[in-house]
Design a protein around this nucleic acid. Structure first.
Lengths: 163, 163
DNA sequence: ATTTCTGCAAACCCTTTGCAATGGT
DNA sequence: ACCATTGCAAAGGGTTTGCAGAAAT
């Protein structure tokens, strides 16, 4: 349909077609909701389903949280997004179009930092060679404490809260 | 009280007193429930709150799940137990009296294996030196796939179920 | 006697599901 | 037209909380 528009789209129109093709090859359909969820994940970087819903709703009203869950499951199956657990609450979703990295979560101050693949490489190699295990770096979240942190954990329990 | 019993306890009686002292020094009390929860965690090794409850109930009837949660929180604060997340469901609790180790979870076959501290040492050192982050190995769970696994993840999504 | 702790029931958060209506293709 | 997808509402795990009665010190 519309052959005159082929190279008109510049960027977002072609991504739109790529996504549609990806979905169609598996028997799925492209819907506004699916597009918006993917865009929201890409925009937010570290987003919970609820946060994604809020962003989606800014662009289209009436979208339901269950659609977000169903869509995230689908996008993850298509390897367009991944999720990890940065706390005991809701998981966070990430776009696979951004460079892979792991996360380090400080239980004292709550800060989440990104850990580049280089820092994990040797560990991953060890697991593979010695334990026959292939680590998924995008899912990796390590918990502990920043060394220069206001130091909790001295009788009081570590603060996981959003302070 | 009872100075004649000092070295009588052999093992479990003295641990009982140690636990009581530990609790009392913080203003807490030793109750049968607390003792039973701790014993259950030590006995089960990798236990969810629900599994712990089942074991506790074999020895004392009427114990409630909320007591288990409250007790686990307390025991964790006292560094007698730790927890980690081996899946998207309930966390698993471990006794700190067993040697520290991390866990590797295969998303294809669901198997959970223990990763000894030696395998994590260098990674932990890297995080500390280069990123100022002190990793808690007991909380560490890595996700991925066994290399000699019936191989899922080829269109089908990874099986996280209890097969 | 005092104060913590427990069981119970209800509430809560996050996620999943059944179903009729909507909407891609 | 066909059938995937959605919104809604209800249900489902797992966890937390308020409170009155039970138990530890």
């Amino acid at each position: 349909m519309g052959e005159a528009r082929e190279r008109r789209g510049g960027d977002s129109a072609s991504r739109h077609e790529e996504l549609r093709a990806e979905l169609r090859s598996r028997g799925y359909r492209l819907t506004p909701q699916r597009q918006l969820v993917l865009e929201a994940v890409e925009e937010l970087q570290h987003a919970t389903p609820e946060q994604i819903l809020q962003v989606v709703r800014r662009k289209a009203r009436g979208v339901n949280i269950s659609t977000v869950y169903r869509t995230l499951e689908l996008l993850e199956d298509l390897d367009l997004v991944t999720h990890t657990h940065l706390g005991d609450r809701a998981p966070t979703y990430h776009s696979t179009s951004t460079p892979a990295h792991a996360h380090a979560v400080c239980r004292a101050c709550g800060r989440v930092s990104e850990v580049p693949p280089e820092a994990v490489e040797r560990f991953a190699a060890t697991l593979l060679e010695r334990y026959g295990f292939r680590l998924d770096i995008r899912h990796l979240a390590v918990f502990g404490e920043c060394t220069e942190c206001p130091q909790a954990r001295s009788g009081e329990q570590a603060v996981t809260s959003k302070a």
